[in-house]
Write a protein that binds this DNA or RNA. Structure first.
Length: 639
RNA sequence: GCCGAUGUAGCUCAGCUGGUAGAGCAGCUGAUUUGUAAUCAGCUGGUCGGGGGUUCGAGUCCCUCCAUCGGCUCCA
C-alpha cells in the first residue's frame, strides 16, 4: 500500500501501482469522467501511469491550466497523426500547447500547405479521435530513440534527441503515430470532441531566422462542441474591438499608402483624445518636478555613435539624411535620450541641482521590418512620453520609486487592471549584446528588483529582454486578441552617462557621474491608445471622450433651444455638438449610438418648455429628463 | 525580412469555367418636421492596389512591385 495526499491535506491509502485515474474514480464517477491530467509530487503525470510510492496528487480538470495544456498537447499529437496519414513523409518539429490551443511545426517538403486543406485535416483528426486510441508511454534508450527516428527519417526529432540525456527519453504512441515526448497525455483520444484548425503560418525551426522555415498549424480543441462554438463567438467579439477597425470607424486615425506604411496619421477626434491623455501626464509630471524640453527630430550621426545606437542599430535604421553641400549625415531620431544627455551636459551641474528630470513627448522614427507593422501597436513613427532623470546614486532608489508610483498612477487612471510587470534583464549567455560593465549591470538589475519588491509589485523575470544599455521594468498589457504588448517602461542606465561623459560636482568638490533613469509611463502614445481602444471597445472614459454629449433636436423648431443648451454646457466646460440634420430622432439616436458618444440629449417641445434635456446614455438607453444645469453637474461629477 | 493569405465605390461585400463592373450603407438633391437604434424617392461615385505580360478580348490567367491580414524573426 502507498499513501497519497490530496491538496486539501487529507491522506488516503491506495494499492501500490494505482493510477491517478483510479484515484479520481475512488472519489467520484464525475471526477473520473472529467479529469484530464495529474501532477504527482508536482511533476506532470499521465492519468494511466502507475504510482509506486507515497505521493502528493493534484488532479487537473478543464478548469485548470494544466488540464487544458494536457488536452491541447494531446490534440497536437492527434494533429500529427492526421498529418502523417494524409501527407506521408512529413517531418515533425515541436507541437506544444499554448494559451489558446496548440500548434505543431511540420516540414511538408515541397508541399506548401494552404488554409484550404485545413478542413480535410480537421476531418481526419475527428475520424482518428473516434478510434479512441490509447496514448501509451514508453521509456526508451537514447540509441533506440535515435534508431527509431533515423529509420523514420525525421531530422528535427533527431536534433532534439541529441540534446537529451539518456535515460530520460520517452515516446508516446497513439494509433499508428509515435512521437518523442515528455508527456503527459490524455488516456485516449476520444475526449477530443470539437476540433478547429485556425491558421497556417511560417515559423523558423527553433526560432532561428537563419534556419529552415517550417509550417506551423494552429488549432484549438474542446471536450464539447458547445465550448468550441462559444470560443469562436468570443473571438468574433474580440475582433469587433480591434483598434484598427474601431480607429477607422470612429475616425481616430488613418494610414495612407502614399504617406507610407507604419506612419499613423491622427485625425481630429484621435488627436483630441491623445492631447487629453498627454495633458493629463504633463500636469502630473509638472507636479513631480519634471522640466519639459523640446528637441529636434534629427541628430547628427556622431550623436548616435556616441550613444552606441549607431553601432547597434545603424544598419537597421532609416538611413541617414545627407546635406547637399557638406555631406553631413543626420539620422531621424530613434530615441530621445541622446538629445536629453546633451541637455543635461550643456552646463555644469551641482549635486544640489539633482535630480534633473528632463521630459519631452518626443516623436521617434524606427525602421521596423515590413512584416512587423501592426495598426498603432507597431509603427515606424511614434511619440514617446519620454523623460530622463539624472540623479546621484543616493537618489536612485527614491527616484525609481517615484517613477513606479507615477506609472501605477497612470495604469490605474486608465483602468488597465490586467497588466504584467516584467523585469527585463540581460541574457547572461550573451553579454556581448550589451554595453557597459558587469558591475554596473549587476547594480542596476539588483536595484530594479529591490524597488519592485519594496512596493509589493508582482513581477516576472525575463532574461534577454533588457535594452542594450540597461535593464528594464516593463508593463505588459494584452490586446483584444490576447497578444501581449509593452506599454510603460522604466530603465536604469549607468552607461549613457558614461558615454556622454556626463558629470556633476559633488559636495566633495569632485566630479561624479550621474545615473540615468529612462521612463515612459504610456510607452508610446500610439501603442497606448491602440490598446486603450481595445480595452474600452471605443467607449472611452468621459474625460477622454472626443465628444461628451450630442444634442439631438426632435425637429428644426428646437434648433435654437439646442443652441441654448449647448451654450450652457460649453460654459460648464463640457464638450459636444448638435446633430442638426433633418432626420428622424430614431435615426439621430442610432447614428450617435454607433459613434459611441457617451450622452445623447434629446430636446423637443417638452424640454424646451421646461429648460430640461432628455438624457440618454450610450449603450444603456433613456435615463429620463432633467434640468440642463443638473445634467452639467452630473457630468462634471463624473470627470 | 521570411511563410501563408487577401486587395473590386468612403465602408461592408457580390461578380460562374476570361466576353470590356453590381448591391446595401455613406455622400449629394428633393420631399418629409419626426419623441429614444435606420422616413421615402432620385442621383453621383470605380484607370477592379500599381506596373508589365499572355490573349481578338483580363476584375478574372501569369510575372513583379506595393499595401493589408495571420504567424515567425525582430522591437533602442
Amino acid at each position: 500500500m502507498i499513501s497519497i495526499s490530496f491538496p486539501d491535506g487529507h491522506v488516503r491509502e491506495f494499492e501500490d501501482g494505482v493510477t491517478p485515474l483510479e484515484v479520481a474514480a475512488s472519489i467520484s464517477e464525475g471526477l473520473a469522467r472529467n479529469v484530464l491530467g495529474a501532477s504527482i509530487n508536482d511533476a506532470a503525470w499521465d492519468l494511466t501511469r502507475p504510482i509506486h510510492q507515497d505521493s502528493s496528487i493534484v488532479l487537473h480538470t478543464w478548469d485548470s491550466s494544466e488540464g487544458k495544456a494536457t488536452f491541447w498537447h494531446s490534440s497536437a499529437h492527434l494533429l500529427a497523426e492526421a498529418l502523417e496519414a494524409l501527407y506521408p513523409g512529413v517531418q515533425f518539429g515541436i507541437g506544444p500547447a499554448i494559451d489558446q490551443g496548440f500548434y505543431y511545426d511540420v516540414d511538408l517538403g515541397d508541399h506548401s500547405l494552404s488554409v484550404d486543406e485545413l478542413p480535410k485535416i480537421e476531418a481526419k483528426m475527428k475520424e482518428l479521435a473516434q478510434h479512441k486510441s490509447v496514448f501509451t508511454r514508453q521509456a526508451v534508450s537514447k540509441s533506440e530513440a535515435i534508431r527509431f527516428f533515423t529509420d523514420k527519417g525525421d531530422d528535427y526529432k533527431l536534433e532534439l534527441i541529441d540534446e537529451l540525456e539518456d535515460g530520460t527519453i520517452t515516446f508516446y504512441q497513439q494509433g499508428n503515430f509515435t512521437d518523442l515526448c515528455r508527456g503527459p497525455h490524455l488516456p485516449d483520444t476520444s475526449k477530443i470532441k470539437a476540433i478547429k484548425l485556425m491558421s497556417v503560418a511560417g515559423a523558423y525551426w527553433r526560432g532561428d531566422e537563419k534556419r529552415k522555415q517550417m509550417t506551423r498549424i494552429y488549432g484549438v480543441t474542446f471536450p464539447k462542441q458547445k465550448m468550441l462554438t462559444e470560443h469562436l463567438a468570443l473571438l468574433e467579439e474580440a475582433r469587433k474591438r480591434d483598434h484598427r477597425k474601431l480607429g477607422t470607424e470612429l475616425e481616430l486615425f488613418m494610414f495612407s499608402e502614399k504617406v507610407g506604411a507604419g506612419l499613423p496619421i491622427w485625425l481630429p477626434k484621435g488627436t483630441a483624445l491623445r492631447t487629453r491623455l498627454e495633458d493629463y501626464l504633463k500636469d502630473e509630471q509638472l507636479r513631480r518636478g519634471y522640466k519639459p524640453v523640446i528637441t529636434p527630430h534629427i541628430g547628427k550621426k556622431d550623436l548616435y555613435v556616441t550613444s552606441g545606437h549607431y553601432e547597434k542599430y545603424g544598419e537597421d535604421s532609416f538611413q541617414p539624411i545627407q546635406t547637399p553641400r557638406e555631406n553631413e549625415e543626420f539620422f531621424l531620431k530613434p530615441m530621445n535620450c541622446p538629445h536629453h544627455c546633451e541637455v543635461f551636459g550643456h552646463k555644469p551641474r551641482s549635486y544640489r541641482d539633482l535630480p534633473v528630470r528632463i521630459a519631452e513627448f518626443g516623436t521617434v522614427y524606427r525602421y521596423e521590418q515590413s512584416g512587423e507593422l501592426h495598426g498603432l501597436t507597431r509603427v515606424r513613427s511614434f511619440t514617446v512620453d519620454d523623460a530622463h532623470i539624472f540623479c546621484t546614486p543616493d537618489q536612485l532608489k527614491d527616484e525609481f520609486l517615484d517613477v513606479l508610483d507615477l506609472t501605477m498612477h497612470v495604469i490605474k487612471k486608465l483602468s488597465f487592471e490586467n497588466f504584467t510587470a516584467q523585469v527585463s534583464l540581460r541574457d547572461p549567455e550573451n553579454k556581448s549584446k550589451y554595453i557597459g560593465s558587469d558591475e554596473n549591470w549587476e547594480k542596476a538589475e539588483a536595484m530594479i528588483q529591490e524597488a519592485a519588491a519594496e512596493v509589493g509589485l508582482d513581477t516576472v523575470v525575463e532574461l534577454g529582454e533588457a535594452a542594450f544599455y540597461g535593464p528594464k521594468l516593463d508593463f505588459m498589457v494584452k490586446d483584444a486578441l490576447g497578444r501581449s504588448w509593452q506599454l510603460g517602461t522604466i530603465q536604469v542606465d549607468y552607461n549613457l552617462p558614461e558615454r556622454f561623459q556626463l558629470e556633476y560636482i559633488g559636495s566633495d568638490n569632485e566630479a561624479h557621474r550621474p545615473i540615468m533613469i529612462h521612463r515612459a509611463p504610456f510607452g508610446s502614445m500610439e501603442r497606448f491608445i491602440g490598446v486603450l481602444i481595445e480595452h474600452t471597445g471605443g467607449k472611452f472614459p468621459l474625460w477622454l471622450s472626443p465628444e461628451q454629449f450630442a444634442i439631438l433636436p426632435i425637429s428644426d423648431q428646437f434648433q435654437s433651444y439646442a443652441e441654448d443648451v449647448k451654450g450652457q454646457l460649453f460654459a460648464a466646460g463640457l464638450r459636444g455638438y448638435i446633430d442638426g440634420r433633418t432626420e428622424s430622432i430614431g435615426r439621430k439616436i442610432r447614428d450617435t449610438e454607433l459613434k459611441k458618444v457617451p450622452y445623447m440629449l434629446i430636446v423637443g417641445e417638452k424640454e424646451a418648455g421646461t429648460g430640461t434635456v432628455g438624457v440618454r446614455k450610450q449603450g444603456e438607453g433613456d435615463q429620463g429628463s432633467m434640468p440642463v444645469e443638473d445634467f452639467a453637474e452630473l457630468l462634471k461629477g463624473l470627470l
